[in-house]
């Protein structure tokens, strides 16, 4: 396949960026999208042009490191991560526009690489269960109802990629926060800190400069792990309960 790529190039956070056009030839449909970019980079290197910077690590859809806007869709046209997107989803002769996640809370580091440190800080503000090592009771001493454990697992699959933020017209990270609130809130171990967790995490979310959620639903459609919208509902509910309890 031969393709035209329009890629956002930006030398660093403070420098202005612009779209650049490149041609790549001989792309195999079996390549992953990132392998296609590897091919482009190898070509650029040969020509003496600096390769396009983009993030990836596991390349199997689980670490959450990769992610870019492809033709206006977070992670591209399939419900998966960019590293698991394959070129057979495109046609010979296509023009593909590639941009970084755009959110002021995720500043561009270079080209397609953004800084998602805000997610770590949100977790720091409550996204955990305080259980010091060594203090844990026997694992089976507290049974967890299976349906709740299943729901906890389903939303714990969030990989922290940031596609939800990238896709949300409001630049909100509510899906990410809701997923964590729901994961920990469904488990018996998560109850003692339930109120402070949601208050802390939402506070940090807002402080980081993410937008508010108006329930538009683009986030869940972009989420490679298909985290459902009800986690946002759960987030609101838990927040209300916490406020009732005087937080």
């Amino acid at each position: 396949m031969n393709l035209t790529l329009k890629i956002w190039r930006q030398p660093d956070t403070s420098a202005p960026g612009a779209m650049h056009t490149y041609q790549v030839e001989g792309i195999s449909p079996d390549m992953s999208f990132l392998e296609m970019l590897d091919t482009l980079n190898e070509q650029l290197n040969e020509k003496g042009e600096e390769p396009v910077a983009f993030d990836s690590d596991c390349r199997e859809g689980i670490c959450g490191m990769c992610g870019m806007m492809i033709n206006g869709q977070a992670h591209g046209p399939e419900v998966t991560t960019t590293c698991q997107l394959h070129m057979r989803s495109f046609k010979d002769g296509d023009t593909i526009t590639v941009e970084p996640w755009r959110a002021d809370a995720f500043p561009v580091v270079k080209d397609l690489v953004v800084d998602r440190g805000a997610f770590d800080r949100i977790i720091q503000s409550g996204g955990f269960i305080s259980a010091n090592t060594g203090s844990a009771p026997e694992a089976n001493s507290v049974p967890a109802p299976r349906d709740k454990a299943m729901r906890a697992f389903n939303v714990a699959t969030c990989i922290g990629c940031g596609a939800c933020v990238a896709a949300c017209p409001n630049g909100s990270a509510s899906l990410f926060v809701g997923a964590k609130i729901t994961h920990l809130g469904e488990l018996p171990q998560g109850q003692p800190e339930r109120d402070s967790r949601v208050v802390g995490m939402v506070g940090q979310h807002d402080h980081e400069g993410f937008g508010g959620c108006t329930n538009i639903g683009e986030c869940t459609a972009a989420c490679p792990k298909e985290i459902p919208l009800d986690v946002i509902s759960q987030l609101n509910k838990d927040l209300r309960t916490a406020m009732k309890h005087g937080h």
């Binding site: 909100s172 508010g212 538009i216």
Partner: peptide, 22 residues
């Protein structure tokens, strides 16, 4: 307030942006 937050949350716009579910 919501509008202002949304504006500030994304000051540089996408060149191409598709809507899928909304």
């Amino acid at each position: 307030v919501l509008t202002a937050r949304a504006r500030n949350a994304r000051t540089s716009k996408y060149v191409v942006k598709k809507n899928l579910a909304s």
